[in-house]
């Protein structure tokens, strides 16, 4: 009998898994902290065009977004490209006001670094985009970014 008992003791001791929850929690907190919930829900479709010479947009807090594209709800709003500011459809002449309020929301020091990122659907006609650009020029928001997806040349 004693012969069998001895055999049981040999073998690797089990690795303690008691600290596993802690490790996982650490990972969990990392992701919870870094997750940015999307601020704007888009009501227009923005399938971005591709470009290869892209630059990264630094400092997300200093970027205001303008979305242009076909409304998601086509049966209600039609297929004509619309401009979305904040959470609603807007007309071109509402852009200055939007830019002013965006500026107002930033610190005085940061205001001149404010970039306007245009998230425009690739099927949009340039007419709307040009109108938006003209409005931006009028209010002095000269720094713009044509948001694109990265394309890699083979």
């Amino acid at each position: 009998m004693s012969r069998f008992k001895k055999k049981k003791d040999s073998g690797l001791p089990a690795i303690s898994t008691s600290s596993l929850p802690d490790i996982i929690f650490m990972l969990l907190f990392f992701f919870m902290v870094t997750t940015v919930m999307r601020e704007n829900t888009t009501i227009v479709k923005t399938r971005l065009p591709q470009a290869s010479e892209v630059q990264k947009l630094e400092k997300k807090s200093l970027v205001s977004y303008i979305y242009i594209g076909e409304p998601r709800n086509v049966s209600l709003y039609g297929t004509e490209s619309r401009i979305q500011l904040n959470d609603q459809f807007s007309a071109v002449n509402e852009i200055p006001e939007f830019i002013y309020s965006e500026r107002e929301a930033r610190d005085e020091v940061d205001r001149k670094f404010l970039t306007t990122s245009l998230k425009v659907d690739e099927a949009t006609k340039m007419g709307v985009v040009t109108d938006v650009k003209q409005e931006l020029r009028k209010v002095g928001a000269f720094k713009i970014n044509y948001s694109t997806r990265k394309k890699v040349y083979k």
């Binding site: 990972l27 630059q55 947009l57 000269f142 713009i144 044509y146 694109t148």
Partner: peptide, 24 residues
């Protein structure tokens, strides 16, 4: 929980062509 956050996290970095508009 971890998997939930992993899935919902979008690490999208905004990239694009940065241009400067001319003054009016």
């Amino acid at each position: 929980l971890l998997v939930f956050f992993l899935v919902t996290t979008t690490m999208d970095v905004d990239t694009g062509l940065i241009r400067k508009l001319p003054p009016p």
